[in-house]
Design a protein around this nucleic acid. Structure first.
Lengths: 197, 197
DNA sequence: CCCTTTCGTTACGGTGCGGTGCGTATTGGA
DNA sequence: TCCAATACGCACCGCACCGTAACGAAAGGG
């Protein structure tokens, strides 16, 4: 939302309100989890009217999505160490570390919303998931150009990288440790570089 | 619930009520998805009072969990063809086929509930997830005893089998095709039988 | 016969959602 | 400078769902 190219007439939206909504969303998710997040709660916590929220976002999911995208905008580096396993390990360690904090709770909220609304699920995919998948795709492509990857299909490899993460976010987020990142990066690297069946 | 060893005194529970609740839950999930499922809706659809439901189940999640466990009780075979890839392919094809039907919607509902209640997530894990993981564990152990598995850790392999499935259930259930089952079974088999890194 | 627990029915208070109407404030364009 | 458009906060509504409670009736065991 926050259409920068809306109608040019009338009173402009207050950026402080935008920011207050995002911050209140982060705060609520952080200390109450997805359950504690409601449109009314967000409005109350941010000291903003409910209408100010509804003017900007069509649904609770959109608020959370925007909060996460804005929060995580600066991150998402694509490691390039020259070694596939090292690249994957770095990316997974950083990603898992984030899942243990506020972004993890936000991702859980996005998953919960997605399960209740397939259209929203697609929006999350287009807005967030694809970018993360592309990062791993780059890592794989670079390794492939170095001749380190024999496995023909990036997509399956990427699923094997992120699938277990979402699985853990749903059922047991404590699983996302550095040790687990190590195990996964070894497994995927082994598969990617193994001789073709 | 439905404690067969409850207090033996008082008016016994009507088994027809038990069954009506389960059936109504299946029906609701089947044609409206998780969104359309509510305690009131279940009571209304089953022609039973809301108290009759609350007497049996502490939460909506418990109702869904019981409905799924009862519904899928007869299934869950563990294929044993003598070939690891074949066993995995059979299991994944059957599992994915189920996810395209009512059990898939039920699993999505369980995931949504789990995301809102970590205690319930553990209950789902203990009741359902572990049994499925054990089935894959058996397949791997048999292949291991035939000398077909070099990968040291079953747990990671099992995560690679089920992680992508839950990932797809959250964001795009249409991905769970036979072709995808084939790709995954090949990938996991390749990793399991690849030379140690 | 009495006690306990179930049954169905009905009702209540609480919460969140999505939306609306009102009065006021603030902007850019005519 | 005035005006149209949009923003703002505040208050309210109808709806759905949740969880609990009260009631009398029914069904079993001691």
């Amino acid at each position: 939302m926050s259409t920068s190219l809306g109608h040019m007439t009338g009173r402009p939206r207050d950026p402080a309100v935008d920011e207050a909504i995002r911050q209140a969303t982060l705060d609520l998710v952080a200390d109450q989890g997805y359950r504690g997040v409601s449109m009314e709660g967000i409005a109350a916590r941010s000291g903003v009217s409910k209408q100010a929220v509804y003017r900007r976002y069509a649904s609770k999911g959109e608020v959370i999505l925007d909060a996460l995208v804005t929060y995580a905008r600066t991150r998402l580096p694509t490691p390039d160490t020259g070694d596939l396993r090292e690249d994957l390990l770095t990316l997974l360690e950083e990603t898992f570390a984030a899942q243990r904090g506020v972004p993890g709770a936000l991702n859980q909220a996005l998953a919960a919303e997605s399960l209740q609304d397939p259209d929203f699920a697609r929006r999350v995919t287009d807005t967030l998931i694809q970018a993360r998948r592309a990062a791993v795709g780059e890592i794989l492509d670079r390794a492939r150009s170095r001749g380190q990857v024999t496995y023909p299909d990036n997509d399956v490899l990427i699923d094997l990288v992120f699938g277990p993460m979402w699985y853990a976010l749903v059922f047991d987020a404590t699983k996302l440790t550095d040790a687990y990142a190590t195990e996964l990066s070894i497994a995927v690297t082994t598969l990617a570089t193994s001789p073709l069946p």
